[in-house]
């Protein structure tokens, strides 16, 4: 285990498992990712299960008063969050292709999941 908490290149994986509407999980998960990046940590996002719908274009505020998450997603590059993994199986199940999504992503097959979890020092699951 790492004890050097000041290391700038610490690897944080934030897993987003909820869609953009119906709960605050996506927004609060993204907040955690942005804060980690603002503190100089290297952050990877994994959009998993229902979370892949966060990347479908046009996620606006809607009538329920929650802020839309699309503007936050568009800011990720400014925070140097550039590795966006998506659950390929979840895309397939929903009839989505990587080209339907708002941002360039890297598909992740189920067989790659365990290795991805293992290679990150901190995994936060939302």
């Amino acid at each position: 285990m790492q004890d050097d908490t000041t290391k700038a290149s610490s690897q944080v994986l934030v897993i987003l498992r909820h869609g953009p509407h119906g709960s605050s999980w996506l927004r609060e998960g993204l907040d955690a990712a942005l804060v980690a990046a603002a503190f100089g940590r290297e952050v990877t996002l994994l959009f998993y299960g229902e979370g892949v719908t966060a990347l479908v274009e046009g996620q606006g505020a809607g009538p329920l008063g929650q802020k839309g998450t699309q503007p936050t997603l568009e800011m990720l590059a400014m925070y140097d969050i550039e590795t966006l993994l998506v659950d390929q199986q979840a895309l397939d199940e929903r009839g989505l292709a990587a080209s339907d999504l708002l941002l360039p992503v890297t598909p992740l097959a189920p067989s790659q999941l365990a290795a991805t979890l293992a290679e990150h020092e901190l995994v936060l699951n939302f």
Binding site: Q2, V12, V35, A36, F39, L124
Partner: peptide
């Protein structure tokens, strides 16, 4: 702040959610 969560996650041996 949330930064304290990130610090806790990286500085402790285990973070359990």
């Amino acid at each position: 702040g949330l930064g304290q969560l990130i610090d806790a996650g990286l500085s402790h041996d285990r973070l359990i959610t």
